[in-house]
Write a protein that binds this DNA or RNA. Structure first.
Length: 437
RNA sequence: CGGAGCGUAGCGCAGCCUGGUAGCGCACCAGUCUGGGGGACUGGGGGUCGCCGGUUCGAGUCCGGCCGCUCCGACCA
């Protein structure tokens, strides 16, 4: 993509409405624009990142054996009346009336819809387990949206729902999600810390929140400092095997959110305890038969008896992750994207657009890297070098490739890793292509 | 939902107290010089001062109401 043709409305100054760094950078880097409180439009580069994150999540869900579906954003009120949540959910649920005066709602979550699908289609324990996921928009009419996309009203979310014949099966499904989440967040360049969560209003037995540490996180968290040395990608995972040992291992180290932490009863020594703030990026939940009982989602078990199905639901805040990743990975100049989700891998900077040698070298680099399948943004604008570097730093492209008359005289271009404190490597055009392909 | 603050050009802000033809910086357009970390000069364009009403000869400025946004608290993926 040529920057001269790319819709990337960057800002030099911080918009007054943005208080935290991820929000400021997302606005300044031209990723999003606010449409109303907590409701955002995603511009080309922001949308690219959102889709890249979505794809990582999708791959990990598929790997864990979940199947992708797409449910409606608008749901009939009747399903929620059946489950009993229509009255319980309160004002956070956006309620709508259609032209026939029927009550609808914009889904804040999808337990009712998926349970309805399940009960109409599945009758036998032999069809279990089933695990369905979707990635799309939800709406919760938060009283106070804030922190940009991290606490929006409309948000993009992966949610999935597991159905099992008994509690043992449900725990197996739960464990699969637990491990898939660890892998997923690690692939996004984050260090996820699963924390035992309060099961709250939904009730239930087993629940973990996946927290990413960040100074601007909205909840206080406490954990063993040894968490910083963990890396889930070192795990060799077979989702068909017994995952309990992995889950046990990853729940041994102490980690607790504010409401679960008791300073007087904390097993970690003071100097080994990290106290900080965190962002919740995922939540897994086993809640048993709450919805299946209320909504009559039963299957016939091997003895011929009809039993309510055991369910769990699990969420990842995909749009929130965009903000969370920026919170975890930026410097004073801008965003530093992990390569796994970067909108572009390479930012090509023509330091003297209009100079024949520079143009020719850039054209070659641009064409060859594109041919090699490398996502590249080429700053071909007639701007000063400083403007281009500042812009490239701001949008966070992992590799900056600078081409100028000075270097070309010696047959070299300069390669810099974003976030590496300005260490530039000089290399020939050919080796640059080889390095980045 | 309680408390507070703010709405003036695309962005950041001044002007309001003390009413009298709407300003600054950045961005944008044209041109000249420049050219390796947000460059300089010259000349331009862009505003129903959030909305409605009131006071006044006259309202961005004073008064009332409404809307929107932000912050703190309570609540949440």
């Amino acid at each position: 993509m040529r920057l001269s043709r790319y819709f990337l409305p960057t800002l030099k100054e911080n918009p007054a409405e943005a208080q935290i760094v991820s929000h400021r950078l997302m606005l300044r880097a031209g990723m999003v624009r606010q449409s109303a409180a907590g409701i955002y439009s995603w511009l080309p580069m922001g949308y690219k990142v959102l889709r890249n994150i979505e794809q990582v999540v999708r791959e990990e869900m598929d790997a864990a054996g979940s199947q992708e579906v797409l449910m409606p954003t608008i749901q009939p009120a009747e399903l929620w009346q059946e489950s009993g949540r229509y009255d319980d959910y309160g004002k956070e649920m956006l309620r709508i009336t259609d032209r026939h005066d029927r009550s609808l709602l914009y889904g804040p979550t999808h337990e009712e819809v998926v349970t309805d699908i399940f009960r109409n289609a599945v009758k036998s324990y032999r069809d279990l387990p089933i695990n369905l996921y979707q990635i799309h928009w939800k709406f919760r009419d938060e009283v106070r949206p804030r922190f940009g996309v991290m606490r929006g009203r409309e948000f993009f979310m992966k949610d999935n729902y597991s159905f099992d014949i008994d509690a043992a099966g449900a725990v197996r499904s739960y464990n699969k999600m637990f491990v898939a989440y660890l892998r997923c967040f690690a692939r996004l360049g984050l260090t996820p810390i699963p924390m035992r969560a309060d099961t709250g209003a939904i009730g239930g037995d087993l629940s973990h929140e996946f927290i990413v540490l960040a100074d601007t996180g909205e909840s206080a968290v406490y954990c063993d400092k040894s968490w910083f040395k963990t890396n889930p990608l070192d795990l060799d995972v077979d989702f068909e095997s017994d995952l309990q040992p992995i889950v046990d291992e990853w729940t041994t180290l102490y980690a607790a959110t504010d409401e679960m932490h008791d300073a007087a009863d904390c097993p970690v020594a003071a100097d080994q305890l990290y106290e900080g703030r965190g962002i919740e990026v995922g939540h897994i939940f086993y809640f048993g038969t709450k919805y299946s009982t209320a909504m009559g989602a039963t299957v016939t078990d091997s003895s011929g008896a009809d039993v309510p199905v055991e369910m769990g639901s699990h969420g990842i805040g995909v749009s929130r992750l965009v903000g969370a990743i920026i919170e975890a990975s930026h410097d004073e100049s801008g965003i530093i994207w992990p390569e796994s989700i970067a909108p572009f891998k390479v930012g090509l900077i023509n330091l003297r657009a209009g100079d024949d040698a520079c143009d020719a070298a850039c054209d070659k680099l641009y064409a060859d890297l594109q041919k090699a399948g490398v996502e590249i943004i080429y700053d071909d604008r007639d701007e000063r070098a400083g403007v281009k570097f500042a812009n490239m730093d701001l949008i966070g492209v992992p590799w900056q490739l600078a081409v100028g008359p000075r270097g070309l005289k010696n047959g070299v271009v300069e390669l810099k890793r974003r976030g590496s404190d300005g260490d530039k490597e000089e290399l020939s055009i050919e080796s640059a292509i080889a390095r980045l392909s």
